[in-house]
Amino acid sequence: MRIVLVPGVPALLPSYASIEDPVADLRAACHHAVAELGPRVRVLASSPLGERVARHLLGAAGAEESEADPTGALVVANGSAKRTVKAPGHLDERAEAFDDDLRRALVQPLPAGLAGIDVDLAAELWADVGAMPALAELLTPGTTAEVDYDDAPYGVQYWVIRWS
């Protein structure tokens, strides 16, 4: 089963569209990745807002949310929102190292690292990692990651990653 990670960025929602898209590259990466998930997709998100982002991306891909016999899984999560002084949560010096560890666990991948993520530190760093333990269960041995997007343009760490 194919698995995709996207960040739960509200600016991706049509109701928050601008004339100039502030997340054009991220959006393109999300659409490209989600298109590979097939018609029935299980959604793993930690919040209703994350679920809305997931449903929007699935709708754009012509796929639907489904727990039964899924062809793919869409995970909504992201790193810290405290990466710079202008970030939503201002600068926390621990954010970069936290995101580096998380990146390593996602890309290698290291399911144990995702399952055992420090949720208290994540909460302090405004990182959305509620779906990581569920993702860890899906990453069977031999799974490899392809990173489509890895940036923090607004002080929030985003990844778009495909596993297969």
Binding site: V9, P10, A11, Y16, A17, S18, I19, E20, P22, V23, A81, A87, P88, Y154, G155, V156
Partner: peptide
Amino acid sequence: RRPPQRAIRGLQ
């Protein structure tokens, strides 16, 4: 009737 030119504050 018109979207904002570029809205990202609070929507990151």
